[in-house]
Design a protein around this nucleic acid. Structure first.
Lengths: 148, 148
DNA sequence: CCGAATCGCTTGCGCATGCAAGTTGTTTGC
DNA sequence: GCAAACAACTTGCATGCGCAAGCGATTCGG
């Protein structure tokens, strides 16, 4: 029982490392964005009003708040996100997706899907993929920020 | 079809980030080893003679060769691995698990399994776990270095 | 054989990230 | 109301990592 959990956890982490290694290469060269930057944009995309506070973004991305601060700066500079204050709480500094950002994330999703296709190749049936999708969904169902 | 691949890839990466975030906390405080260091030791553990060359280790861990060099140094210092030369090829510098290292990785595996158990809690049946295990195995089957 | 290409490993450098401390703004307890 | 606790964000510092360059060792082509 516990051994099965261990096996699954190990395989999950190894699969993720493998996939991340494959993606990191082909990605930044295409869109000028890193994988993590695209993930940040995707989180904004699926959020109401296309915006999130920095701490909320940090929670959903499983990174520290300082990382969000530093990731957002260059993204503002290239105009894919903007900073937005809250009239009720002056501490809040929302990160909001711009129109340009929306277009960029749509493009990035395309190449992401293409690469994802290579990962599963042709040996996977739709049924396999649905099964895996359902199982993985149960792992992230309770946490906020599912990008699918 | 491609959307299913995309969905699975996103969920896989998100699940892995989530699990890694949970593990990183409870781990180094217990064994004085980081998650990645334990992974390195596990790769050695399942290798013939409990040893691997640095480049082979790099491939299996999906990191660069320089990372292996720098990870091995402190592990040598605390005595869980040792450096071993090859009589045939003087370029090779194997990383070999010591007796102490064997014990340490066994301990680490225990707490790893414990944490893995928390990840899946009690809502997962053995059948679910086997299904997920099989599916994930297909993702890493072609690459060397499966730790399970 | 000998030079050139290749390989395994290490090192310098830059970038990304977490942690802790600091700043500013808000909420709570009295 | 006011002080103390708390929250959101930023910044300094240390660490970990990839890339490219460098160095010794091996292999290959002639």
């Amino acid at each position: 029982m516990e051994d099965l959990c261990l096996k699954n956890t190990l395989r999950l982490l190894q699969s993720a490392d493998q996939i991340k290694a494959r993606l990191s290469g082909d990605f930044s060269s295409v869109h000028g964005l890193s994988v993590n930057e695209v993930f940040l944009l995707m989180h904004l995309e699926q959020a109401p009003l296309h915006r999130l506070s920095r701490v909320e973004l940090a929670k959903r991305m499983h990174v520290s708040a300082s990382t969000v601060t530093r990731m957002a700066a260059p993204l503002e500079k290239i105009g894919v996100v903007a900073r937005q204050a809250d009239s009720r709480d002056a501490r809040l500094a929302f990160v909001v997706l711009t129109q340009t950002g929306l277009e960029r994330v749509a493009e990035a999703r395309m190449t992401f899907a293409k690469q994802a296709g290579y990962v599963f190749r042709d040996r996977w049936t739709d049924e396999d993929l649905c099964q895996l999708s359902d199982l993985l969904h149960r792992l992230i169902a309770d946490a906020p920020g599912d990008l699918t």
